[in-house]
Design a protein around this nucleic acid. Structure first.
Length: 554
RNA sequence: CGGGGUGUGGCGCAGCCUGGUAGCGCGCUCCGUUCGGGUCGGAGAGGUCCCCAGUUCGAAUCUGGGCACCCCGACCA
């Protein structure tokens, strides 16, 4: 098909909105792909929607290839369904009422609805099933940001697998994993699949697909040798070894008046900060104080600590600290504390300096095996310079966008919604489920983050809004028409810039901004030689093609 | 929710401190000019100055309250 720029709703801008920070935000707005309606609420303009639909189509083809069946579930959802699964209380959930006061929600994701429909799966003979749809999700995000990267309303492809047992679920899960690999590859996206926290979704395991980008909300940690990838929140990494002072036979108290930070302590004692330990008291729901202990030069990863403790914890207040330790923050340590100590793995070996639990005093030569009881867990935040836990290679840290997430839900939703089937042993069992999400809008943003230059977007051919951008310059109008027709006849989608009131420079600037892979310039200059100029957007390489050969070039 | 910032034609901004005619660039309309990397000249259109209240003869400007948006953090599929 041929779209004529003179008639399109394609409002490109010379300047980016002042409040845009992320490259994808700036370029997608400038290029006339998207416009903001409200915080985290966006409209896709015609050009942007074309890209969205091409991404959708790739997703659709790969879902269909693994036996997925596309359907379309409602947005408006009765609140009771969400009450049954215990998710009605989620602060992210948009809630509303109809004229009679009946309560509805705008789903964050559609587990409840699909499980509700799965009530009709009654026999193992009907399993497995993979159902999916593309539907708008509502999420009352506390802080939308960066264009399409974090929004309050967006289209998601969410798929749900229904299996008879864990083994069958594993098969469905692996199928989806491979389908996701193909989707991202086809979209031209660089990404890593990493183990992830399951958050409010529940279930036994989940994997994130993270695309490195200049702007994003996750940090992807990868090994230089390619055998390790993880989200920073759960990545395990090997830090450098501390330089320990000579060992002591028993802990030795030293006066450290006014020393409350690790840096000050290390400098005061003339030792490596890595040879100290840092005490972070936290409080469980029941009020018990737990001491989290990390190496002096490390930071505590709260997500890991939460997993280690098994429940939400909060930092202890100064009063709680004084009554549990008998000292002020800055002089706290494991010796003499009678509660639970969770120590980072890095503290397993060696002698560290720790707080003495007396304000203004520390202990040298504290050795866990000999001096105190602790439970070990990986609770530190990996840092630049750490090594890969598998091969010892250097780790790379990159900001990344979460473009997809796949979950093993087990019976998290089928149990409360009573979605059961009759197995071949005559037993009634809950369906074993998986859920698989991908956001085309985020994929779009991630691709732009990864693929652009100073002049604009460089779309991969697979998801570009058009295949060919024909720039008609004065004297080239009729040949441009013919060229457009030739490309269209060959099945290509053509954007023909036939604007009579735009000058060449303006058209070129727009073409670079919009980022269609192939640009064909038709004007007097080349037509004198009976040729047109063809430029590859990605490489910038130009070549001349005879008008007579256009038919074969398409 | 905590911290910081911003609200003035479609976009980017100045004016606010020190109250009195609302201004600049881009874009838009018309005329001419130019025509392969955002021409040049001329003439125009377009604004509840975020909202409400207050102070004042007079408020974009001062005071109070509210709202919206952005950034950092917390949170997050």
């Amino acid at each position: 098909m041929i779209a004529r720029a003179s008639q399109l709703f394609l409002p490109t801008l010379r300047d980016a909105p002042a409040d845009a920070e992320a490259v994808s935000h700036k370029l997608l707005v400038r290029g006339g792909f998207i416009r903001q309606v409200s915080a985290g609420v966006w409209t896709f303009l015609p050009l942007g929607w074309r890209v969205h639909r091409r991404i959708e189509q790739i997703i659709r083809e790969e879902m269909d290839a693994i036996g997925g069946q596309e359907m379309f579930a409602s947005v408006l959802t009765p609140a009771e369904l969400w009450e049954q699964t215990g998710r009605y209380g989620s602060p992210e959930l948009f809630k509303l009422e109809d004229r009679n006061g009946r309560r509805f929600v705008l789903p964050i994701t559609h587990e409840e609805t699909f499980t509700f429909h799965a009530l009709e799966l009654q026999s193992y003979r009907q399993l497995p099933q993979i159902l999916y749809h593309f539907q708008t999700k509502g999420r009352d995000e506390p802080r939308p940001r960066a264009g399409l990267i974090r929004v309050r309303e967006f289209v998601m492809k969410d798929a749900y697998s229904f299996d008879r047992d864990a083994e069958a679920q594993e098969v469905s899960f692996q199928k989806h994993w491979r389908a996701y690999d193909r989707m991202f590859e086809r979209c031209g996206l660089r990404y890593s699949a990493v183990a992830a926290e399951s958050g409010m979704m529940g279930g036994s395991a989940s994997f994130d697909f993270l695309a490195p980008a200049g702007s994003g909300e996750n940090t992807l940690v990868t090994c230089e040798n390619g055998d390790f990838a993880a989200d920073l929140e759960i990545a395990r990494a090997i830090p450098r070894a501390p330089e320990f002072p000579p060992p002591l036979d028993s802990p030795e108290e030293v006066e450290t008046p006014g020393i409350a930070t690790i840096d000050a302590l290390a400098e005061f004692l003339g030792i490596d900060p890595a040879a100290t330990s840092k005490a972070m008291p936290v409080v469980k729901r029941d009020g018990t104080v737990v001491l989290a202990l990390v190496r002096g030069d490390d930071r505590l990863e709260e997500a890991k600590l939460l997993a280690a403790v098994g429940e939400d914890v909060r930092p202890a207040t100064d009063d709680e600290i004084r009554s549990a330790f008998g000292a002020d923050p800055g002089s706290l340590g494991p010796i003499g504390f009678d509660g639970e100590v969770i120590a980072d793995e890095t503290l397993r070996d060696g002698q560290f300096v720790a707080g003495a639990n007396r304000t203004g005093a520390h202990l040298r030569g504290v050795e866990q095996r000999r001096d105190f009881q602790a439970r070990f867990a990986d609770i530190r935040v990996p840092r630049e310079g750490d090594r890969c836990p598998t091969c010892g290679g250097a780790l790379r840290f990159e900001t990344a966008i979460e473009v997809g997430h796949i979950f093993k839900l087990d019976t998290r939703y089928s149990e409360p919604l009573n979605a059961r089937f009759l197995d071949d042993d005559g037993q009634e069992k809950p369906l074993v489920m998986g859920s698989y999400g991908i956001g085309p809008g985020r994929v779009m943003a991630a691709v732009v983050e990864q693929s652009h230059d100073e002049n604009g977007i460089v779309w991969p051919a697979s998801i570009a809004p058009y295949d060919v951008h024909i720039v008609a310059l004065p004297g080239g109008e009729s040949i441009a028409d013919q060229a457009a027709a030739a490309f269209a006849a060959a099945g290509r989608d053509v954007l023909l810039d036939d604007r009579a009131d735009a000058r060449a420079g303006e058209k070129f600037a727009d073409a670079d901004l919009i980022g269609i892979p192939l640009r064909v310039t038709v004007g007097r200059k080349s037509l004198e030689d009976g040729a047109v100029d063809v430029r590859d957007r990605a490489t910038g390489a130009d070549r001349r093609v005879n008008v007579a050969d256009l038919g074969t070039e398409t």
